[in-house]
Computed example of a mutant assay.
Amino acid sequence: MTDASHAEKARHTWTLYARMYERGESLAEAAEHLGLAAEELSRAQAGLVRLGLLDTETETTVDAAAALARGLENSHRVLDRLVEQHVMVASLAQNYLGFTRHANDDLRVEFYERERSAALNNRIDELADLAQLEVMAMHPAANWTPERLDADDTRTRRHVGRGVRVRALHAQVMLSTPMFRDRLRARRDEGMEIRVAPVIPTRMLIYDRQVAVVQADPEDLERGAVLIHGRDVVRSLAALYEFCWTNASELVDVPRSADDAALTEQQRAVLRLLATGAKDDAIARSLGVSTRTVTRLVGELTAMLGSGSRFQAGVRAARLGWLD
C-alpha cells in the first residue's frame, strides 16, 4: 500500500471517530453522513478497534485518554505486544487527545436507562482508568453475583496498584453473606478502605471529586443511573459521602457480625431494653426469665460489643444495626 493510501486510510479513521465522538452518532450513522464506501468503512472500523477507540459490542466510541491509559498499562505487562502498543499510544497522543466533549458550562448530566447498562459499565470502566487520586463508592444492600464481585475486584486492584485511594461504604446487613464478607476482608487486606453502616442512602461512585455516578431512583435499583460532570455539584455529593463515612464502622468494629454469628431473638430483646436503661430484674420480668439468666446474657453481650457499660452496649448495638 502506498503512502497516499496509508494517509487516506488514517484520514477516514480519524474522521469517523471525530463524527461519532462529537455528535454521538452510531457507526452506521456516521459512515452514512461521511459518505464512506463499505470497504472504507471496514478499514476505518478496523483501525478504531486496533487503537482501542471503538467498543465492538455497543459500537460506541471509547474516550481517547482512557484508551491511552489502557494501552500504556498493557504495554508494560505484555512483552510480546510491546511494539504494537507503543505504535498505538503514539497514534492516540498525536491524533486523538485533542478531543473534548463540549458543554455549555461546567455541569453536564448523562442519563443511562436500564437498557443502556452495557454502555454505563463501559463509562464506569473509563472513569476507573482515568482516576488519579481517589475513588469513593457507596453500595446499599444488593444481590451481588460472583461475576460482579470479580469485575469490582479487578477495578479495585487497578486503582490500588496505581496508588489511587479507594474507599467503599457497604450496607452492614451484607456481612451476613459469607461470600461477600470474605470479599470485603480480602479487599481490605489488599489496601482498600472499607466501612459499613446500617443505612446506605443510595448507590454512588465518585471519581477524583469531579465526576459522580448516582443511582437514578434510590427506591429502585433497576431504574438506571445518572452520570454527573461538574466540580461544584460533585463536591456536594462528596460532602454527603464524607458524612456517611464518618458515621460508619470499620469491619473490625462490628463485633462478631463479621464472623456470621447471628443474635438470638432473646439477645435482641435484652439489647433493646438495655438501650432504655432497664435493670436486670425489669428485663427479667419483661421476658419472663430469671434475673440470673438476664445477668448472664448482659455479661455476654457487653463482652461481645466491647462496651464499658450496659447502657453503652444497647446504644452501640442499635448504631451497628443489630436491632433492625
Rank of each mutant, 00 (worst) to 15 (best):
E250V: 06
M192F: 01
E22C: 13
L120C: 04
T156P: 00
L273P: 00
A212D: 09
V173A: 09
N121H: 10
V173T: 10
V109D: 00
R70H: 10
D324R: 15
P255H: 09
V89C: 11
A284R: 08
D280H: 15
A37S: 14
G277N: 08
A269V: 03
L41T: 13
R185C: 03
S5A: 15
R195V: 09
Y17W: 14
A225F: 08
Y21F: 15
A212L: 04
E190T: 07
A4I: 15
R162C: 02
R195E: 04
T61W: 08
D105E: 04
A225L: 00
R203C: 02
M136S: 14
L184V: 10
I200N: 04
A10D: 13
K9M: 15
E84P: 00
T293Q: 13
I283Y: 02
V62D: 05
P201E: 12
T2N: 15
Q266H: 10
Y21D: 05
E147S: 13
A313I: 11
T154W: 06
V109C: 00
M20C: 07
R268P: 01
R316C: 03
R23N: 09
D55M: 03
A64F: 08
R155D: 07
A131Y: 01
V294Q: 02
L305S: 09
L297V: 01
R165F: 04
D280M: 07
L34I: 10
G47L: 11
T291H: 01
T56A: 10
D63I: 01
V315H: 00
P255T: 09
D55R: 11
Y112T: 04
R108A: 14
L41S: 06
R285W: 00
R116F: 01
S75K: 04
M1N: 11
G98E: 02
I200M: 05
L72Y: 03
L237T: 05
R296C: 00
A37I: 08
L221N: 11
M174T: 10
M1Y: 06
A44T: 12
G98R: 10
A303F: 00
E29A: 15
A284G: 05
L34Q: 06
T177D: 12
L227H: 01
K279M: 12
E73V: 01
E110S: 05
R256W: 11
R292D: 14
T177F: 02
V196Q: 04
E59G: 00
D189L: 12
R157L: 11
V83F: 03
D208T: 02
A258Y: 03
D63F: 02
L221S: 14
L274V: 14
L51Q: 05
A119V: 12
I200G: 04
W14Q: 12
Q266F: 13
H6T: 13
R185E: 09
A284M: 08
H12I: 02
D232T: 09
R23L: 10
M304P: 01
F111S: 00
A103P: 00
D253F: 05
I200V: 15
A258M: 08
L149C: 08
